[in-house]
């Protein structure tokens, strides 16, 4: 996958602005990461180093928290996020084949984003709610559908 240029290497003030809203207290790590993720679409390595420095903790601690929570990513997410349910019910209905097809068409693996940053493959989550609360997952579902039929 082509490396997407980390935009914040240039615009470091943006990160500083986020940091300044918070006290230099390690309790704020997740709140800061949430904002950085929101802002950049992922958490770039230089930002990780700066956050560690700001809060007075090690880079390993920051990295550990990022990789623990599924909302944080080390690579940019795309405009659209796609996930294929591999829960039991979907699996017996052939979701594995869909997954193969998605990978083949987009030429990316789970956790990666297409070079044009359009589509991010979230990985193979279990969405037991999908069939249930239709309207709530509507957006995600229609997206799934369209992506799958296109591919």
């Amino acid at each position: 996958m082509e490396e997407v240029k980390c935009e914040n290497c240039k615009k470091d003030e943006e990160l500083e602005k986020i940091l300044l809203q918070y006290k230099q207290d390690k309790d704020n790590l997740i709140q800061i990461l949430n904002e950085v993720q929101e802002h950049y679409g992922y958490i770039p390595t230089p930002a990780q180093m700066r956050i560690a420095e700001y809060l007075g903790i090690t880079l390993a601690e920051v990295y550990g928290v990022i990789t623990f929570y599924s909302r944080f990513t080390l690579k940019p997410k795309g405009k659209y996020n796609i996930a294929v349910c591999l829960g039991t019910a979907c699996y017996v209905k052939g979701s594995e084949k869909i997954l193969e097809r998605v990978k083949e068409r987009l030429k990316i693996d789970a956790g990666e984003t297409t070079p044009d940053r359009k589509i991010f493959h979230r990985g193979n989550k279990m969405y037991r709610g999908l069939r249930t609360s239709t309207s709530i997952y509507n957006k995600r579902r229609s997206l799934r559908k369209s992506n799958c039929t296109k591919s």
Partner: peptide
């Protein structure tokens, strides 16, 4: 006296 703050989870 009482105050209240929000803490966001991050998907776990």
């Amino acid at each position: 006296s009482f105050d209240l703050n929000i803490r966001l989870g991050a998907g776990a």
